[in-house]
Design a protein around this nucleic acid. Structure first.
Length: 508
RNA sequence: GAGCCGGUAGCUCAGCGGUAGAGCAACGCCCUUUUAAGGCGUGGGUCCUGGGUUCGAAUCCCAGCCGGCUCACCA
């Protein structure tokens, strides 16, 4: 028998004793507080003597003979209760003694200050509202400094409820993320975009270069895929003359996890008819400015080490091939064809000495991929303040309009913050003939073994053939957006339940 | 997928060849305004799993599982 089991048994015994005393925590359905802990504490001296009710979780418990204290937390704030045997009566006093850190209770009493001046509730009535059967690893704290607590990253992610109870930063992150998505919606709604929902189960999972998850639909006895993007269905709505649409939804990519990747993540995509990639840039700039201002009260966000992430002005705009020439020394002429590029780069591994990132030119078998690799290794690390990189190669952009003035280049940009991609946008292809050719090129790549190449989607082509206006579209990873704006170091801090392998449990 | 680091009490950690420790939490007693409450006492561990080396393994070796970091791939 493990120790945890005996601690749990002990708490079950306390629960049973509470029930014997006529206080069944789990029988209570409702308890109304006069206000939040912070409400009660505000302008406290004016309210001394006032009768109040308050419910919260027990986060400290100090028994001293025939009286005692406990701090009750509502998550946002906490207030101390003073419990005295004479005031509570025998049964409720025993209930107080049976309380553990982690239990929920409701109290009624008057506001007063203790001898040491702490605003407290002089409790007359105690109502247990839940019993915690496990130890809550809440550290003790003094003057804002915390001792112990839950710090093991694995446990924090596996038991996020404990993380939220024990670590105020985790709670802060959750709230900030919610505020960020709310303000994204507010911004787009105010601009006349319609929020929609499109299928997650799809026959053809397209709109991005990624491997999908596959599952089985019993009723039709067919395999279906989980979506990897929102793009194609949203554009079918544009084809239905819904001129401004967006969706914030979960997409799934069958790939590894890292500091900046999770196999399921939240994607925002928005599409607007009769505009182009420049129009999308303005929307993106405005969105970040609005969200930063609304959530953080400033468009100049202080990051660690005194760095300020600045959304107050238009984002820097650079051309992809210009930047590669400037930072990697590879010219546009070099990048005219795959052969000329290989000739220019040679067969040696090229290392960016500043970052340690490297390219193996001979491993890149198409020009677009090679160009994007050069971007990643030499350009990305320089894109710290918000920057739009314009002009992506056609091979890796099967849904973006061709640039009429630049063969091989599309009307596409990506936005970067802190050296990482944050959005991807373009003037959408609305020529069904062009779109079919692009898909066919992708099928060619797929035949050569590229299992992330885009599949053919006849339904989508059919919608284009019925007519789609010129359209600008953009995708933004909401998790990354939350990460950048909050200054979180890893994506899993803003994904509350990151994908993890199961932990084998012996006590099942 | 590769490399490096880690997994010891409920939590945070120490121990790194001689048979398991601390603080907090827990349990008992004392204490009717404390606040990292205090005092006295007590219990609690397949040292991630499975092999191996050794008289002896938490400790050394091998394999595996889970996690973290870096890299690869992608948003």
């Amino acid at each position: 028998m493990s120790d945890e089991l005996s601690l749990r048994d002990l708490r079950l015994q306390k629960l049973a004793r509470m029930r014997e005393l006529g206080f069944d925590p789990f029988a209570v359905e409702r308890f109304e507080s006069t206000g939040s802990a912070n409400d009660l504490l505000a302008d406290f001296d004016a309210k001394q003597g006032q009768a109040v009710a308050f419910a919260g979780r027990v986060v400290s418990h100090r028994l001293m003979g025939k009286a005692g204290f406990a701090h009750l937390s509502d998550g946002d704030g906490k207030i101390q209760g003073y419990f005295k045997k004479d005031d509570l009566g025998e049964a409720a006093w025993e209930v107080y003694q049976l309380l553990d850190i982690g239990d929920h209770v409701g109290v009624q009493g008057e506001l007063f200050r203790t001898k040491t001046g702490e605003p407290s509730i002089h409790v007359r009535t105690l109502v247990p509202l839940s019993k915690a059967l496990h130890t809550i690893p809440l550290g003790k704290e003094k003057e804002g400094q915390q001792w112990y607590g839950l710090t093991d990253t694995e446990q924090r992610y596996r038991h996020r409820n404990l993380d939220l109870i024990c670590n105020p930063e985790a709670r802060e992150m959750l709230i900030r993320r919610a505020q960020i998505t709310r303000e994204v919606r507010n911004y787009l709604d105010a601009r006349g975009y319609l929020e929609v929902e499109t299928p997650i189960l799809q026959i053809v999972a397209g709109g991005a270069a990624a491997r999908p998850f596959t599952t089985h639909y019993n009723a039709y006895d067919m395999d279906v895929k989980l979506r990897i993007s929102l793009e194609l269905y949203l554009k079918r709505l544009i084809c239905g003359d819904i001129p401004k649409v967006y969706e914030i939804g979960r997409v799934f990519r069958n790939e590894g996890v890292s500091n900046r990747h999770n196999p399921e993540f939240t994607l925002l995509e928005f599409y607007e008819a009769y505009t182009d990639l420049e129009g999308m840039m303005e929307v993106v700039e405005g969105m970040f400015r609005h969200v930063a201002q609304a959530v953080f009260g400033t468009t100049q966000l202080a990051m660690r080490d005194g760095f300020v992430l600045d959304f107050s002005s238009p984002w820097r705009r650079v051309d992809l091939l210009d930047e590669i020439e400037r930072l990697a020394g590879v010219t546009r002429a070099d990048l005219a064809t795959l052969e000329s590029a290989h000739k220019a780069l040679g067969d040696k591994v090229i290392v960016n000495t500043a970052t340690g990132k490297r390219i193996v030119p001979e491993e890149e078998h198409n020009l677009g991929g090679l160009i994007e690799k050069l971007l990643e290794v030499f350009v990305e690390p320089t894109l710290i303040q918000p920057t739009f990189v314009v002009g992506y190669p056609i091979e890796t952009s099967p849904l973006a309009k061709k640039d009429p003035n630049r063969p091989g280049i599309t009307r596409r940009f990506e936005g970067y913050i802190l050296g990482k991609e944050i959005c991807n946008a373009f003037s959408e292809i609305n020529d069904p003939i062009d779109q079919r050719e692009r898909f066919e090129q992708q099928l060619g790549a797929r035949a050569k073994g590229d299992d992330e190449a885009h599949p053919m989607d006849e339904e989508f082509i059919y919608a284009l053939e019925c007519g789609m206006p010129p359209t600008g579209g953009c995708g933004i990873g909401i998790d990354r957006m939350a990460m950048f704006l909050t200054g979180a170091e890893v994506l899993r801090e803003v994904i509350f339940f990151p994908t993890m392998k199961p932990e084998s449990r012996e006590d099942d």
